[in-house]
Computed example of a mutant assay.
Amino acid sequence: MDDQVKPPTLGRAPDADQVLSVTSRILEELLQEYADEIEITRRTRFLDDLEIESVDLVVLAGRLRDIWGVRVDFPRFISGLELSEILELTVGEVVDYVVMCLADVEKDG
């Protein structure tokens, strides 16, 4: 896996487009050659569109934590969802969660 995925250096919390860009690069790394076949957008579904497996979600959780810090607690986010919500989870929902966590960090100073 490429360790070059880094968050933008802004001095403030990133916006949804910046988080989407970083998250998309992580997913492209996970999916490798399959990523060339699909455009990753906010509406992209993890299960139906990307065919992400649970182990891939674990890797995604670790990468999000490595890049954005411990405040982005992806396992906690997932544990608060119903099974049907997890099955329909979109990249946009994850992006919104990350943005919310990072905005809270910025508010806390």
Rank of each mutant, 00 (worst) to 15 (best):
Asp3Gly: 13
Gln4Phe: 09
Val5Ser: 00
Val5His: 00
Lys6Cys: 08
Lys6Pro: 02
Pro7Asp: 11
Pro8Ala: 11
Leu10Asp: 00
Gly11Tyr: 14
Arg12Phe: 14
Arg12Pro: 04
Ala13Trp: 06
Ala13Tyr: 11
Pro14Val: 11
Ala16Asp: 13
Ala16Val: 05
Asp17Val: 08
Asp17Gln: 09
Gln18Asp: 09
Gln18Met: 07
Gln18Asn: 06
Val19Pro: 02
Val19Asn: 09
Val19Ser: 12
Leu20Asn: 02
Ser21Asn: 13
Ser21Leu: 14
Thr23Leu: 15
Thr23Val: 15
Arg25Cys: 14
Arg25Thr: 12
Ile26Glu: 05
Ile26Val: 15
Leu27Ile: 15
Leu27Met: 15
Leu27Ser: 07
Glu28His: 12
Glu29His: 14
Glu29Lys: 11
Leu30Gly: 12
Leu30Lys: 12
Leu31Tyr: 05
Leu31Lys: 14
Gln32Leu: 10
Gln32Asn: 12
Gln32Ser: 15
Glu33Ala: 10
Glu33Gln: 09
Glu33His: 07
Tyr34Leu: 08
Ala35Ile: 09
Asp36Thr: 02
Glu37Gly: 04
Ile38Ser: 04
Ile40Ala: 00
Thr41Gln: 04
Thr41Val: 08
Arg42Ala: 11
Arg42Thr: 06
Arg42Tyr: 13
Arg43Asn: 14
Arg45Ile: 12
Arg45Cys: 15
Phe46Val: 12
Leu47Gly: 03
Asp48Phe: 13
Asp48Pro: 01
Asp49Leu: 03
Asp49Thr: 04
Leu50Cys: 09
Glu51Val: 12
Glu51Arg: 14
Glu51Phe: 13
Ile52Asn: 04
Ile52Thr: 08
Ile52Trp: 05
Val55Leu: 15
Asp56Ile: 07
Asp56Ser: 13
Asp56Thr: 08
Leu57Cys: 03
Leu57Phe: 06
Val58Trp: 04
Val58Tyr: 07
Leu60Ser: 01
Ala61Asn: 06
Gly62Ala: 10
Arg63Phe: 04
Arg63Ser: 11
Leu64Thr: 03
Leu64Glu: 01
Arg65Val: 04
Asp66Thr: 06
Trp68Ala: 04
Trp68Lys: 05
Gly69Trp: 01
Val70Thr: 13
Val70Ala: 15
Arg71Thr: 10
Val72Ile: 15
Val72His: 07
Asp73Trp: 10
Pro75Arg: 03
Phe77Lys: 09
Ile78Trp: 09
Ile78His: 02
Ser79Tyr: 02
Ser79Asp: 10
Gly80Lys: 09
Gly80Ser: 10
Gly80Met: 09
Gly80His: 11
Gly80Cys: 04
Leu83Thr: 07
Leu83Pro: 00
Ser84Gln: 10
Glu85His: 08
Ile86Lys: 01
Leu87Tyr: 00
Glu88Ile: 00
Leu89Met: 06
Gly92Ile: 08
Glu93Leu: 12
Glu93Pro: 10
Val95Glu: 04
Val95Pro: 05
Tyr97Cys: 03
Val98Phe: 00
Val98Glu: 00
Val99His: 13
Val99Asn: 13
Val99Arg: 14
Met100Lys: 06
Cys101Ser: 03
Leu102Pro: 00
Leu102Tyr: 01
Leu102Met: 05
Leu102Ala: 00
Ala103Cys: 02
Asp104Glu: 15
Asp104Arg: 13
Asp104Gln: 12
Val105Asp: 09
Val105Leu: 09
Glu106Gln: 07
Lys107Ala: 10
Asp108Ala: 14
Asp108Met: 12
Gly109Met: 05
Gly109His: 10
